[in-house]
Write a protein that binds this DNA or RNA. Structure first.
Lengths: 368, 368
DNA sequence: CAGCCAATGTACATCGATGTAAAAACGTGC
DNA sequence: GCACGTTTTTACATCGATGTACATTGGCTG
């Protein structure tokens, strides 16, 4: 039961502790015979590396933190899956933290959890301010996702403004004229919602459509209930939209439900489009058109950026205090594409896929 | 930039390293004046505890692992949220790991990730066998969720057999007679699916309905696409069910989509019920009846069980080798309840909620 | 076979925090 | 003012793995 240490393995194999360490770490200059003997001792005794010792010595843990507002928001869960996968390929372990959109939690994450056991942080901030970010000191290497708070940190996201503009133009192209932005908000500021709102307004302006501030439906959070409630409230107040630009798929799925309850057909009466391309939108009724970010790319790039910073941090700059060799903050844009499904295209377009068409013909037949 | 150590703080404050340590750890016998001086030095230098050192000395990390098959399965994401919350209240940090239902990954998790940096593991196994579990040696304290693989480990779950039986009885109570079990499988074995299948069969038997092996629709995984495909295949092969017992909500949501595409009305033609009560089922069209486990309770109990084991492990039993004082494996059952929504009850029942009723009347009017 | 280089292996110090044991400081009662 | 019991503080060893610097071995050249 007593824990097996390198010392025990060394004794058992009749070699020094360092040699055991060399075997474990795949050091080149170890003869095959020695390696074999040591390996047998390791297997025999059931030795496992003690991370505490290694960490203390190496100053690295191999653990990075992924910090998201809520794990049960599918977008973040799907993103987490990709991040974990990418990290694993680089022998990094991912510690997931959820902040509940709480500023204190996010600050703690920025500071490396008040201690020193994550080598880096991938943070999807919601409540942080640019000042928070700027005033952080000796924080671990950090990559921001989604919101670009300020220029001081590496950042990965899609071009939210352009994406929102394209989505809105798609709705306009369908002949829609009264388009509500669910989750939209005052477009000053650097957040994702603000950027998407800007794109929405840009598309309206380009099409010569008037912008009505009341068309922005603010929401407390980006989840289904909020989307459902916001749209219900707007309809109750007399709004008669012919399209909804929902700033994420959860809001859109909630909105679909409300439209159904109000007896409004999608997309005939109201076209709906979202952001994120979560799985739920591929199986909803109707299926949901959406802006699909390349999540795998977001994950991959975030990890790469982080690794670069981690390497920088590990190599004490030759000039010491001089910031030479430190790369300036990167701001990378990931591709997105419009995925058009029933909630804007209707059932007709689905005939592209023969199987779907067949099913749908069937559906049309008996679809009350 | 150089890291601040206790030594630096001690020098700055003019005391010994141990005194600084005492201050940090709220040791009682430190004079107020000393404490103040040390605290000032800490603040001044921006000292942060180095977990590596502490971990090495104390042998504990304060980190527990939550190991799930897939994070982007909403049930696990929602569960993770609760676990993280509960753990936080006990000053534990949660490391989430996803196994992709891969046996090797699950084994690695059981072994504490081949190293020693998690104090405990909460594992939701899918691919492990009882043998795997039995043969583990010096693994960290472990609590199993969902599947009871064998008696050797602590375990938390709902009474899956009973829950499935109740859900099936509900369907039978609606007058349904041809009930397919989506995700159902041969009911030998200890897995969740097996237990639910047993409950399904028990309910059929109790109602005097014949069991048709073809009514079990196996699925490769418990996700929406699998539910959609399994049901489509069954329908294509001529099955004409009047109800579906889906072994989780994801399968059910996928099934809803297929039924829609085949023009079958829910619940008029086919009633559908799932398990898990995920958010998506509260906003689907129709909304989804489901077996709702008390997820918060699962999380709370799992953490409590784990903490107990961790404490046991920390206190070297007085008798040393004797297993005295070690609690026998716990097998706890968490409450569940049937949540009935449109997919079995139809719209009528929803009239309990006036607002919903109104909306639905409206809906009936123009619902194509 | 001396001499040299490269390959291999070892002893020891070190990373940072904390437990142990004991010394120093302090206070109290006589 | 002294002995004694607390409280407060300190020096030092220790947790486990690994980097450094050096010792040893073996092979090969001339």
């Amino acid at each position: 039961m007593a824990r097996v240490r390198i010392k025990d393995v060394a004794r058992h194999a009749g070699v020094s502790e360092k040699t055991v360490s060399n075997v474990i770490n795949d050091y080149v200059h170890v003869s095959d015979r020695t390696r074999r003997v040591v390996q047998e001792a390791i297997d025999h005794l059931g030795y496992k590396v003690n991370l505490a010792g290694r960490h203390l010595r190496k100053g690295r843990t191999g653990i990075i933190a992924l910090v998201v507002p809520e794990l049960d928001v599918p977008y973040f869960a799907e993103l987490a899956r990709h991040v974990i996968r990418e990290a694993e390929q680089r022998s990094l372990t991912v510690l997931i933290h959820q902040t509940g959109a709480d500023r204190d939690h996010e600050l703690a994450a920025l500071a490396g959890f008040g201690s020193t056991f994550v080598d880096g942080v991938i943070l999807s901030p919601l409540a942080l301010t640019a000042d928070d970010l700027r005033s952080r000191t000796d924080a671990p290497p950090t990559v921001l996702l989604g919101e670009l708070l300020e220029e001081g940190a590496d950042h990965v996201a899609i071009d939210n403004e352009k994406a929102a503009r394209e989505a809105t133009e798609h709705l306009i192209g369908l002949g829609r004229r009264t388009i509500l932005a669910v989750g939209g908000r005052d477009d000053a500021g650097l957040g994702t919602a603000e950027a998407r709102t800007r794109g929405y307004r840009a598309a309206l302006a380009a099409a010569g459509l008037a912008f009505d501030p009341a068309a922005l439906l603010p929401v407390p959070s980006f989840r289904m209930p909020d989307g459902a409630e916001a749209v219900a409230r707007a309809l109750d107040e007399g709004a008669r939209p012919d399209a909804l630009l929902c700033l994420n798929d959860q809001l859109a799925l909630g909105a679909l439900r409300t439209l159904y309850e109000y007896g409004m057909r999608v997309p005939e009466d109201v076209a709906v489009i979202g952001f994120d391309d979560v799985e739920g939108g591929r199986f909803s009724t109707p299926t949901l058109s959406t802006v699909a970010p390349d999540k795998a790319a977001v994950a991959r790039i975030a990890i790469d950026l982080l690794r670069h910073r981690m390497d920088e941090a590990a190599t004490p700059a030759p000039g010491d205090t001089s910031p030479a060799g430190v790369r300036s903050p990167q701001d990378l844009v990931v591709a997105h594409r419009l995925v058009l499904r029933e909630s804007t295209e209707g059932a007709a377009r689905r005939s592209r896929d023969p199987q779907d068409a067949e099913r749908h013909a069937n559906d049309g037949e008996s679809g009350n």
